[in-house]
Design a protein around this nucleic acid. Structure first.
Lengths: 224, 224
DNA sequence: GTGCTGCATTCTGTATACAGTATGCGAACC
DNA sequence: GGTTCGCATACTGTATACAGAATGCAGCAC
């Protein structure tokens, strides 16, 4: 048996990492609304940790772009303007389009088959009660699979980072993303991947992300 | 007078930020060689700070990709394999190509004129004693100007982040980058920017970064 | 009543203290 | 002689303590 695979479970995340993960989840899930005050004393009490690891976690979140340090030494959950959202999607587009282009050459047939199978099922059974839930999980899996298939770990990490940001303002809008629409765009990308056309995959991914941006912007301006 | 513009100078960098900057400089300048041990007690003594802000700075450097946290709780200056370098340049290429494409539409004529003037001067006076120094400063300015002209702050920040990584292994190779070659590639990009051709700018930037990658890889494998 | 000043409170940033864990070396045993 | 166990040391991760800065409120002046 390969013992080294246990290492991770034996060595639990450092406090900093688990605080980071906890706050991350709280932010992207909307539990900590955009703009909320992050008082280190209060937060430390709530999380039952000391301020030292909490501070480190907050600094990481700042790097993630989810927390904004104000001039007067106050940390707040970041607020995103329409321009911020545009900027973020723009960078995300570049990263994911590159990943799709590379993935077209390298993605494993079984991964492709798996993605196609789920996409087909979602297309057929779009009246299921848990359809939304499944579709969201699929969306995650889809983008993650392509990011991984790019064969570039750093690219994959950057894509993950941006996915967090995007998730956080999907919650902000308070509405379900247009999953049905996204699914059909995914299928276009899948077609390109299956036929191993890098340029087509890039374009399809770019179109997908642009369309999602438009959707989010519409929701944001509607909400305002 | 606009007093708010003073704010930044009144509020000096936090200790964490200056430690971060100091170590960053030490790493990318080669003063702290790749692979060196980063003992928190020793480092804190050397920098005359306590371990708390130092730890935060180290974590940030880890996020920057310049420090690697090993399993046994040891921090080291990151070592980059040829594959790492390829991955980093790949991501950098996507970011900078996108910036160039956008900059072609938006870059201000006076910035363009300034870049062109320096490029011309460097082309003419390529025997000056301080030519290398000037050329390096120009390279920095060139990429920074384009990143800024992209009009996307996040994109610019990501580009800066990657430039640090790239700088750090230019030192690693222990050789001067091929500045003359880079300069002529810059001029191709400038041509595209001046004639406002986004696609051409993108392609020229992509070609430039690919060429730089090849150069660095050659130096790394030679050194090995 | 309105606005300024000074103090009390609170919060952040940094330093230090403490506990648990890894590391390296020497001694004992095979 | 080589290997293994155990201890001393050193280092990391977390908590706490302390100092300086910001905020808010009360009291005073106008």
């Amino acid at each position: 048996m390969n013992v080294s695979s246990l290492k991770k479970s034996l060595r639990p995340l450092s406090l900093v990492d688990s605080i980071h993960a906890t706050l991350l989840e709280a932010i992207v899930s909307g539990q900590l609304p955009h703009g909320s005050d992050l008082n280190s004393v209060t937060l430390a009490k709530q999380l039952e940790v000391s301020r030292t690891p909490l501070r480190e976690a907050l600094r990481l979140l700042e790097r993630d772009g989810l927390v904004h340090q104000e001039g007067n030494h106050k940390a707040r959950v970041a607020k995103f303007s329409a321009d911020d959202i545009r900027e973020i999607y723009e960078v995300r587009l570049q990263l994911e389009a590159a990943a799709a282009e590379r993935a077209a050459k390298r993605i494993a047939p079984n991964v492709l088959a798996e993605l196609r199978a789920v996409a087909d099922e979602l297309s057929r059974r779009n009246r299921d009660v848990d359809w939304c839930e499944k579709a969201i999980a699929y969306d995650l899996r889809f983008h993650e699979a392509i990011a991984t298939a790019s064969g570039n770990n750093r690219l994959r990490n950057e894509i993950r980072r941006y996915r967090l940001l995007v998730r956080s303002f999907c919650v902000l809008t308070g509405r379900r993303p247009a999953l049905q629409q996204a699914l059909s765009e995914h299928i276009v990308i899948l077609d390109a991947l299956e036929t191993r056309r890098p340029a087509a995959a890039r374009n399809a991914m770019a179109a997908h992300i642009t369309a999602r941006l438009e959707e989010v912007l519409k929701q944001v301006t509607d909400a305002a």
